[in-house]
Design a protein around this nucleic acid. Sequence first.
DNA 1: TTTCGGATTTAAGGATTCTTTAAGAATTGG
DNA 2: CCAATTCTTAAAGAATCCTTAAATCCGAAA
Lengths: 220, 220
Amino acid sequence: MIDILIVEDNKELADLLCDFLRAENYTVSVAENGEKALQLYQRYGARLLVLDVMLPGMDGFAVCAKIREESNTPILIVSAKTEKDDKLAGLLAGADDYIEKPYDIDIMLAKIAGIFKRRYAQDELVSGDLRLNKESRTVHKGEQEISVTAKEFELLLCLAENQGKVLNKDYLFREIWGSDSFSEQQTLTVHIKWLREKIEDDPKHPTRIQTVWGVGYKFV
Amino acid sequence: MIDILIVEDNKELADLLCDFLRAENYTVSVAENGEKALQLYQRYGARLLVLDVMLPGMDGFAVCAKIREESNTPILIVSAKTEKDDKLAGLLAGADDYIEKPYDIDIMLAKIAGIFKRRYAQDELVSGDLRLNKESRTVHKGEQEISVTAKEFELLLCLAENQGKVLNKDYLFREIWGSDSFSEQQTLTVHIKWLREKIEDDPKHPTRIQTVWGVGYKFV
DNA sequence: TTTCGGATTTAAGGATTCTTTAAGAATTGG
DNA sequence: CCAATTCTTAAAGAATCCTTAAATCCGAAA
């Protein structure tokens, strides 16, 4: 799944925006026309379309309509001032936001951030190439989904939410197993191991989940 | 979340509209100026703003801009004929609809109903090759209609409306059966099975309705 | 360097949770 | 009122996950 699919035939402009967005850790693809946009969308999916209405061939209106047939992926319309006509008004009903060309890049970024926040980010927790989503209870490492069990997820979440802090074993155990649990802390270390197997580049030499001798663990 | 936030300094007019809207079962709040509108909006959120451009203090343009910074909540602009100028044109780009004062209350209600329908009341829900229609309570998989029972439909709808989210069994059961006796959750799992038989390509290895161990189910 | 306590690893049950099946109860429609 | 459909319940079988325990490894202090 691509974060942002930019549909724009002005390569220079697209590249510029693309750079800015990548700097903010979005994954971005560019399509220079409507056909390619749909192709990319169907193949990979996207979390947001930044759609210029004025395109060679299939125009923005058609792309928007096509997308809307099968999903409610957010669409941010980009259009030149001169194109303000009836068609545009109709289009806006189906779109999630609108910006006029030429636009200020900061405003564009703010709008995009806003859409993401409203639509997706409410339950996402990102750290490096790791992405936890509380809602779907999924963990992604880069583009790839990592399947974790219930306890593993809770443990990772607890660590990630306290990024940088050292959490002692007692605390971790109580947090996840509950204070009234009879089982031993031994089980915690086993879960830590399994997590490391899954999220560390080199589980033998963990960097994300560090052990703090005599105390507990730290997520970085 | 408020359904409709009316921003209007003419109290009489606001109350009138408010009454009509409440009669149609919308939840309504009134703000007599821009500051209060933003305050209410930030506090509670709203599904639609009915925004008079001519306000004491912060005007409609500013309110609209502020709202648009953080969301794409539909905005219905209300303005007197005499105010038609450039600024208004710019505003309309960010708005979803427009009505001139003095307006006919029925037309206003129709516009509001239209916005709600377009934006919120989609009665078709599409996901992949699956299509649910809330109105006719039918399910299509590709071209073919799948006959589902009442409970099955509700269950599928509930899952599909929360696509990607993990719904725990308690929640699902309460949502559909309306109570939460634990032993009876068995019945939920049975319905899940039947749904899978009907909508999954390979019911033995479900992909649409995924089980999340120790938690519940997730529709993807 | 040695020692010791803590940390890691491994694998095998044990426990829990999910799936499946089927029978009978409840509901609906003719 | 009967028949057909739908729903609930229960129980056995599967799948998955968790815990335990024992062996091993490692870091810090003497």
